[in-house]
Amino acid sequence: MVFITGGAYQGKRDCAKEKYGLRDEDIFTCTADSAPDWDSRCIEHLERYALYCVKNGLPIEDRSRDDAVLIGDDIFCGVVPIDVTERTWREETGRFYGRLSQRAASVYRLFCGLALQLK
């Protein structure tokens, strides 16, 4: 599994497509209303899946395939949110990404379209 993170609009999806030969139809885009299709080759916006779990009191799981490319926005560098749900979401997403990074064979961080390999 590969984990790609970085701020909003930094080119994470383009990086996944280019490095792993993915097409748009290979990419599942999470919403804050349901769990992803874990059979997908690539799953993006995992921070939204984490929000779905936090809002519904569910554990944040990783049931992705061995060859999955997982993508999540870095949402961690702002002011601590006042709203308890947003605050919990931010914290739980951070822990979730830590678990993904541990499992991943490679981790990338995107900065202005450029990929820095962290692992």
Partner: peptide, 9 residues
């Protein structure tokens, strides 16, 4: 300025 990595909506 790098303004892309917070949880603000």
């Amino acid at each position: 300025d790098f303004i892309y990595a917070d949880s603000g909506l």
